[in-house]
Amino acid sequence: MRNLFAFLAGGLFGTGLYVSGMTDTSKVQGWLDVFGAWDPTLAFVMGGAMIPMAIAWLIVERAKAPVAGGSFPAKPSPKLGRNLILGSTLFGMGWGLAGLCPGPAIASLSYNGLGGVVFVIAMGLGMLATPALRSRLDRAVPAE
């Protein structure tokens, strides 16, 4: 059942990315391009997505356990930390350069040409390299 629910969630996510136009890199770069032709569409997408999610978090506070068993995620940590800031900055740079983030990169894979495939491979390599990079950085500059 977990796989079926995951497929349903992924289908809604993929359809939402397609409908909202978020697989169009010009809309993402347009949102980031505050000194150029600014496009606010992304704010509508984020705002729209927050509504069902906020309701879901309210339900989580009252519910005992997820429908398919297991437990709900732990309360968010208040710790920020170097990795969060460094990682988000690097991610933002890549997001701005190509106008793609992980979800839309997968959603658009079937119609994004060879470039879309190259992006996903490079992203996967970056993800694969991260545990080693992180431990190197921790050794060089211990995080508090």
């Binding site: 629910f5 969630a9 409908v19 509508f44 729209g48 997505a49």
Partner: peptide
């Protein structure tokens, strides 16, 4: 964008509440 966002958020809600 708003409609797509609602679908994305519904997907997130399903993943959270079911799994």
């Amino acid at each position: 964008g708003l409609l797509g966002g609602l679908l994305i958020g519904t997907g997130g809600a399903v993943y959270l509440l079911f799994n």
